[in-house]
Design a protein around this nucleic acid. Structure first.
Length: 883
RNA sequence: GGGCGGUUAGCUCAGCUGGUUAGAGCGUUGCGUUGACAUCGCAAAGGUCGUUGGUUCGAGUCCAAUACCGCCCACCA
């Protein structure tokens, strides 16, 4: 058969379709905002819907986390676009300091066997930019494949000129305001990466270690304080031993001097309530240089700080004989020497938490280092308020508490990183140690005028620039038309795992620099795990590659799975079975569409008489209306998954399973019946495609285009009911959204009538199956309807007969029956008595059981009704429920 | 230590402001391919909704307690 307008290919070729459809959308400019502020006809009063993409790592490769947020945000964008709202989705990528630098370093080492130190900063940055140019498009092209309808002409990169300018402005403003300071503090040092990292970049893992007990000798006596530690090497940096002031055992030692093992340094025994008398030995060694708690105690007691580890985590000169040894090596050697010196008491197995780098996995070393910090409390207070007073809504709600908790206990943010790839800190030092900053690079020291300036070698934390993302991408600090119109943005959709890293910082920085919240809603999705709930990781080997999934089953199937399988804030386990099921759904869509389109060639272009609808027509129309109301309600509440599920169910188990089957009969009747049936078919299919478009954009666009062509070829009067606006739009992506229609009185009646019909058909099918009547065999039946329902059911007798496999010639429908026909089994369904001539095939015992079961059901129902009448139910329950 | 989430069919999970008989996918059983679809259809089996108590005419849904699993934050040597 030729591939004409009424004949679709048997299978949906998603690969060809996806790239063709995407290119078409993009080239026609559908991704651009409909009310662009740079155009003369711009209407500033139309409120836009704006999302800034969570910028992926520029050298990254697509994983399911990307697939998740792209699907979700694209759904939101497409929905609003179809509602006629000017939408903007700003794409871009992040330079991702550490991640990218590591990747390039690894590459250099592998290919040219050089380190970054060997080639120098300038050359290294040059190579990294080249790397970015080469690989930077990979991720954005992969995001395109997912169907992302973002405005690519507004694509940004955190290191591009505009955004670098924004970073400079932000830094200078904070500095001038006194909210940025530099100083030696105890920070988290990553010896492998050789940079400081923020508190958030440290993860704690519970590990089996040892607790080492040893003697702290008291100077000038034979007494000692027993002390326990998990890290003996830090003994080298001890500057005090602390006991609880009320501890009777050790009171006498307070104020005396203790001797650091091996080194023999004298350090004071101090009293501090921080010490827990009941834990360990009850006395605590204090290493302010390498432990956050000890640092705090050290500050309080004015203790000196000794750094015993350098940037490679090797022991410094302060470690005497152990200088130059690695931290673990020193631990072993020191302990051995202490053992020899008789200072060891014992070792015990001990489960403790070890700080590890989120990136490299190596042990993080707390140490004293001079770094840049943001005084965060003033920013946090404002950001806290914005959520508390409802200017920002977090979905799901329970993350609001998590946000509060973090904001209320926030610590200053270490923003300097000892890396090269990133925004270099805009501070210059003169030989006298003065610091100069500025929006332009200074030529002389602002304090002494010295022109010998040297810029701080460090760069800013990647999240410093991402924190500006919602407004820097729109042109800030310039007051651009985009910034004026699109800012504040509407929706921040991202994973809950970066609530603190990113979302919280955008809120703080947005409020600080623009005086406005950067977005009004935060929607947090969950993480994607494998099908048994494990985190996906390369080492476990359970990673599902979205690209492979798309290749095998299509983008729509993957999107639908991610969107419908997820609930806000909850992790989802992804299994390929689910994707497969949704690929089957796409197939179902295609075939149903194929049927509707091919059916169109057999219908007249117009009706000769006014509208005349069947029970099935009224039913599917009513259900379609109900669906639209429900979907709208769910969308308003951000329950996209449930909305998708309902559309899926409606399409498959109502439209395809029932209406399509009946439509075949109605079209075969020809004439007006065929015309009106086609009208309903096309209208309902059209509605479904529109509702599904945000979920599965490709197949719906493709099918809709074909449906439109076929419908238009037949008649201008088919398929243009209600909202749809009177004529076919140019493309589905910009077609009007099926708005909810007000409920009308006839709807519930139509649904009830049809479900009666379904009950009857199901009951007969059930008996046929039980009695093993071949599907092709048409059987006789008598339906006794009662007077009331008789006329209604008579209209649908043909439908019942066809769907239930009854012989139309030997099938009788009567209002009442004098006596029960012999040799028939009887059923009751949909308020109708049904007699089927299947008694011969019936085992009496089975039949008895069946009847008893149905009797029990009837009794149950009577009991319920009686209960209803007698109880307070009728009095207290609302009328619509009672009815 | 503080906080949060989960516990529903064999498996993986939905179930919104409490409302008739608790759903889906996969799996299982039986039957079935002359034009929408075997990536399918028809029929079916399968659940004391973790446990206990409470509120209510009515609880998977709300409240309290409890058990188990998971996550986040803090980080007592």
């Amino acid at each position: 058969m030729p591939d004409n307008i009424f004949s679709l290919p048997k299978t949906y070729e998603f690969k060809d379709t996806e790239s063709r459809v995407y290119q078409d959308w993009e080239s026609r400019g559908y991704f651009k905002p409909s009310n662009d502020p740079s155009y003369p006809d711009h209407d500033p009063s139309k409120k836009p819907y704006v999302i800034s993409i969570p910028p992926p790592n520029v050298t990254g490769e697509l994983h399911l986390g990307h697939a998740m947020f792209v699907s979700m945000e694209d759904l939101m964008i497409r929905y609003h676009r179809m509602r006629g709202i000017p939408t903007l989705w700003v794409p871009g990528s992040d330079h991702a300091g550490i991640a990218t630098q590591l990747q390039v370093e690894k590459h250099l080492l592998r290919t040219e066997e050089v380190t970054r130190e060997e080639i120098g900063r300038e050359k290294f940055l040059e190579l990294t930019w080249a790397w970015k140019e080469k690989y930077g498009d990979i991720i954005t092209n992969q995001i395109r494949r997912l169907g992302a309808s973002c405005d690519w002409e507004r694509q940004r990169f955190t290191l591009d000129n505009g955004l670098s300018n924004a970073v400079r402005e932000a830094f200078v403003r904070l500095y001038e305001k006194g909210l940025i300071y530099r100083g030696p503090r105890l920070i988290n040092w990553s010896p492998g990466l050789k940079t400081a990292v923020s508190d958030l970049e440290v993860e704690y893992s519970e590990e089996q270690g040892k607790l080492y007990f040893f003697k702290y000798l008291i100077s000038g006596s034979d007494d000692y304080l027993p002390v326990a530690t998990t890290r003996p090497e830090t003994i080298l940096g001890d500057t005090a031993v602390a006991v609880h002031p009320d501890d009777e055992r050790y009171k006498a030692f307070i104020g005396k001097k203790a001797l650091v093992p091996i080194l023999g340094r004298e350090i004071p025994v101090i009293a501090d309530e921080y010490v827990d008398m009941s834990f360990g030995t009850g006395s605590l060694k204090i290493t302010p240089g390498h432990d956050p708690n000890d640092y705090a105690i050290g500050e309080k007691h004015n203790l000196p700080i000794i750094s015993i580890l350098d940037k490679d985590a090797k022991v410094t000169e302060a470690g005497g004989p152990y200088a130059g040894q690695d931290r673990l090596e020193a631990r072993k050697n020191l302990w051995k020497d202490m053992y020899a010196a008789g200072l060891v008491i014992k070792e015990e197995d001990y489960l403790h938490t070890v700080p590890r780098s989120q990136r490299g996995g190596e042990i993080i070393e707390p140490m004293i280092s001079t770094q840049w910090f943001v005084t965060i409390k003033p920013l946090a207070e404002v950001a806290l308020e914005a959520v508390k007073d409802g200017r920002i809504t977090i979905i799901p709600d329970h993350f609001t508490k998590v946000y509060y908790n973090w904001m209320e206990n926030i610590e200053d943010w270490c923003i300097s990183r000892q890396l090269w790839w990133g925004h270099r800190i805009p501070i210059w030092y003169c030989p006298d140690g003065h610091m100069t900053t500025g929006r332009e690079d200074p030529s002389a020291c602002s304090h002494c005028g010295n022109t010998e300036l040297e810029q701080d070698p460090d760069v800013l934390d990647t999240w410093f620039s991402s924190g500006l993302w919602p407004f820097s991408t729109l042109g800030w600090p310039e007051n651009t038309p985009d910034l004026r119109y699109f800012y504040p943005t509407t929706m921040m959709e991202t994973g809950y795992d970066i609530l603190f890293f990113w979302v919280a910082r955008m809120i703080m920085m947005g409020l600080e620099f623009t005086g406005q919240v950067p977005f009004d809603t935060v929607y947090l999705h969950g993480l994607i795990r494998d099908e048994i709930g494990r985190k996906m990781s390369k080492t476990t080997g359970n990673v599902i590659d979205p690209l492979t999934v798309m290749d095998e089953m299509g983008t729509d199937a993957l999107r639908f799975t991610l969107l419908v399988g997820s609930t806000p804030g909850k992790d989802m386990n992804l299994s390929l079975d689910k994707v497969r099921a949704n690929r089957n759904f796409a197939n179902k869509l295609w075939n149903a569409g194929r049927f509707v389109i091919s059916a169109l060639q057999n219908v007249p272009a117009d009706a000769t008489n006014g509208p005349n609808y069947t029970t099935a027509d009224a039913w599917i129309w009513a259900r379609q209306k109900q669906l639209r109301r429900s979907v709208e309600n769910l969308f308003q509440n951000h329950q996209y998954g449930e909305a998708g599920r309902q559309i899926y169910d409606f399409f498959w188990s109502e439209f395809a399973d029932w209406y399509l089957e009946i439509a075949k009969l109605q079209i075969a009747e020809g004439g007006d019946r065929a015309f009106y049936t086609a009208d309903v078919l096309v209208s309902v299919l059209d509605t479904c495609l529109r509702l599904l478009h945000p979920f599965t954009p490709f197949i719906t666009e493709e099918l809709w285009g074909r449906l439109k062509s076929a419908a238009v070829a037949v008649s201008t009067k088919i398929g243009l009911q209600d909202t749809i606006g009177g004529n076919w739009p140019e493309a589905l992506i910009i077609a009007p959204w099926p708005d909810p229609l007000p409920e009308e009185g006839w709807e519930s009646r139509a649904v009830r009538d049809f479900s009666k019909l379904q009950d009857i058909v199901r009951a007969i099918r059930n008996q046929r199956a039980e009695k093993n009547v071949k599907p092709t065999v048409r059987i006789h039946a008598i339906l006794s309807t009662g007077n009331e329902a008789f006329e209604d059911l008579r209209k649908d007798a043909g439908v019942i007969a066809n769907l239930a496999g009854l012989d139309e010639n030997a099938f009788s429908l009567v209002a009442s029956l004098e006596e029960k026909p012999a040799g028939h089994i009887s059923l009751v369904a949909g308020g109708v008595e049904i007699y089927l001539p299947l008694a011969d095939l019936t085992d009496p015992a089975e039949e008895k059981a069946r009847l008893e079961k149905s009797l029990a059901e009837v009794e149950n129902q009577i009991a319920r009704l009686e209960n209803l009448l007698g109880s307070a139910f009728a009095e207290k329950a609302p009328v619509n429920i009672v009815a």
